[in-house]
């Protein structure tokens, strides 16, 4: 087994009465590109912030690049690079000036720092953008500036938090390719996203985080297979009785049912067959069905379906806690 660059044991973060990350157990190998996937508010960014030493865990342990985030934060910081929406550059300074400052703070000798800055600018084709103030850059170049800033000291572990949001498709593709190359060179990357297709394209492994809990870890191909089988229907049926909703929930392949009068939304894994059954049940029970239409699943529905619903999540967490 190769070296582990990230290890967490029972990592938990509680804000007041809200548990943002709950008992996270995770292992990421050196040079691995690990995707952390989850809907907004699932706990991805909080996890990254704990691993980056920006916030302290409430409970549990985490080691990054071999150092404990709670007891050796300075050593962790020397070995990590972070690209995140809340970790920005001085907008009145140029990209070059920002990089020089960071190079000094990471203790890079002047000549080495200048070489590294030139190398990164060439790699990302900055040209004249390097001497522009950060506030004058487009969102694509702004994101690139954040990436080169995170890479200035050749970090061992790189955290890319929702890094493609706001990027045009070409830049996003180029960034994915570049990240893959970094991993091939031995850099460990944690890529957080809420876009389901992203990890499939580049990640070695994906962890699904939902309501603060890591509910599944696996290869992206397993994830894709599961998603393709998921379908969601919306039925317009006013004044639906709660007993009928319970009957629909009882179907084996139905993973999630919501009802906001008059819209009944059902997500299930068997596609058309189950839709027909549900509509029949509604009509036979005397419910008025105005329309039925298939819709795109939300991320939350996809995650719940993937994990087989709340009961499956609990079972998975029990198993992962045992070992």
């Amino acid at each position: 087994m190769s070296e582990l660059d990230i290890v967490t044991r029972g990592l938990t973060k509680v804000f007041g009465h809200f548990t943002a990350v709950d008992n996270l157990n995770l292992e990421v190998e050196a040079g691995e590109l690990f995707g952390l996937l989850g809907p907004n508010g699932a706990g991805k960014t909080t996890t990254v912030r704990m691993l980056c030493t920006l916030i302290e865990p409430t409970r549990g342990q985490a080691k990054v690049a071999g150092y404990d985030v709670a007891t050796e934060p300075a050593k962790v910081r020397r070995n990590i690079g972070v690209v995140s929406d809340g970790v920005l550059l001085y907008k009145d300074l140029t990209v070059e000036e920002n990089l020089r400052l960071l190079a000094k703070l990471y203790g890079l000798p002047k000549v080495k720092a200048e070489d590294r800055i030139r190398e990164l600018f060439e790699l990302f084709k900055f040209n004249d953008k390097a001497t522009r103030q950060v506030k004058g850059l487009s969102s694509g170049w702004f994101k690139k500036s954040m990436i080169v800033a995170a890479l200035i000291h050749n970090p061992k572990v790189l955290f890319l938090d929702e890094v493609t949001s706001g990027l045009d498709p070409q830049t996003a593709i180029a960034l994915r390719e570049f990240t893959r190359k970094l991993c091939d060179q031995g850099v460990t990357v944690v890529w957080t996203t809420h876009i389901m297709e992203e990890p499939e394209k580049i990640c070695d492994r994906v962890g699904i985080i939902y309501e603060g809990r890591l509910i599944q870890i696996g290869r992206p191909s397993d994830l894709t297979r599961s998603i393709s089988e998921l379908s969601v229907i919306e039925v317009e049926t006013p004044n639906l009785q709660s007993g009928l909703i319970d009957k629909i929930k009882a179907y084996d392949d139905v993973s999630k049912v919501t009802y906001e009068d008059p819209i009944l939304r059902v997500s299930c894994m068997r596609g058309g067959d189950i839709s027909e059954e549900i509509v029949k049940l509604l009509i036979n029970s005397g419910a008025r069905v105005r329309s039925v239409r298939p819709v795109e699943p939300t991320l939350e529905e996809a995650f719940v379906s993937l994990t087989g619903g709340e009961e499956e999540i609990d079972r998975f967490l029990e198993m992962s806690a045992k070992g």
């Binding site: 920006l54 910081r77 920005l88 907008k91 960071l102 703070l105 990471y106 203790g107």
Partner: peptide, 14 residues
């Protein structure tokens, strides 16, 4: 407000 304090906080700066 501008996120530069967080940037400095992920460097070894004390």
């Amino acid at each position: 407000e501008e996120g530069t304090y967080a940037r400095l906080s992920v460097t070894p700066l004390s």
